[in-house]
């Protein structure tokens, strides 16, 4: 009841706009286009192949319908020629679709998604989802995690600077969650007792949704965070606002409140795991 707005007025235009195609959320990442590209390439080729199948199907249905009164051809299709033909087409599909997609995917993984930035200028963030909120941790002035000066902003608030690579390490506090940024086309499971990682780079400022993509309990649907992409200066000032000394009051507030529920300690964080 609470979130429901009368949508009936909206639905008529949506009916037509949604009938064929919906744009994915706006891509604001450096490498998101790669995923869009591979999806679009797949769209195109399977569209062509499915089109051929449907055309053949329609033609056969029309041409060979029994009401024309002809007799079917007695052909088992077991001749070498036929087998070569289907096998050849199978290989053609494999090399024109699968092999190309595979090549694209491996290239993208090598160049982007699995190619973690090695430069000094990266923002490192630790993410620890819990039922049903996102906790974030920044290394703080000493650039080390798991120390006293770690910056832990209020829950569900993640800030990053624009045009800077961000490396995120994820581990879950309780059940399995999945860190999902639709606007960045990425997703990584958060599993308890295991650290996973991903990286991305924002190209535009704004506030974007963080969603949990893996079922994690009854409030899975509202396990929502906000990713604020801002300029370097804004980001630095936000960081200093959130350093432990200055934000002690806020911190205590949510810490106490949370203590009863899940007991996430105030100084959570793990030593940064080096990724090869």
């Amino acid at each position: 009841m609470k979130n429901y707005q009368s949508k009936n007025i909206n639905s008529i235009p949506y009916f037509f706009s949604g009938f064929w195609y919906k744009d994915p959320p706006k891509d604001v990442s450096l490498d998101g286009y790669r995923i869009d590209n591979v999806i679009h390439y797949t769209d195109l080729v399977i569209g062509i192949y499915f089109g051929i199948v449907v055309a053949a199907l329609a033609y056969f249905i029309f041409k060979y319908r029994a009401s024309l009164g002809h007799k079917a051809e007695y052909d088992h299709g077991n001749s070498r020629k036929n087998v070569m033909f289907t096998g050849g087409l199978g290989l053609l599909v494999f090399f024109s679709v699968d092999a190309v997609i595979e090549k694209m995917a491996f290239k993208d993984l090598k160049e982007a998604f699995w190619n973690f930035p090695k430069t000094e200028n990266v923002i490192r963030i630790e993410v620890m989802p819990q039922q049903f909120a996102w906790n974030f941790c920044y290394a703080g002035p000493d650039n080390e995690f798991g120390t006293d000066d770690d910056i832990i902003p209020s829950q569900n608030q993640m800030h990053i600077p624009v045009n800077t690579p961000v490396v995120v390490q994820i581990a879950s506090w309780d059940v399995i969650h999945s860190f999902y940024l639709p606007n960045f086309r990425i997703k990584q499971d958060a599993t308890p007792g295991m650290i996973t990682a991903l990286w991305f780079q924002a190209t535009e400022t704004g506030v974007f949704d963080i969603a949990c993509a893996e079922l994690c309990g009854n409030s899975h649907y509202k396990m929502k965070g906000f990713l604020t992409v801002e300029s370097e200066e804004d980001f630095q000032s936000w960081l200093s606002e959130n350093t432990p000394e200055e934000s002690q009051d806020d911190w205590d507030d949510w810490g106490d409140e949370d203590e009863e529920d899940t007991g996430v300690p105030e100084d959570w964080g793990w030593a940064w795991k080096e990724i090869k």
Partner: peptide
């Protein structure tokens, strides 16, 4: 599809 081809459907 080959089965339907030249069949009597």
């Amino acid at each position: 599809l080959g089965t339907m081809w030249k069949g009597s459907i």
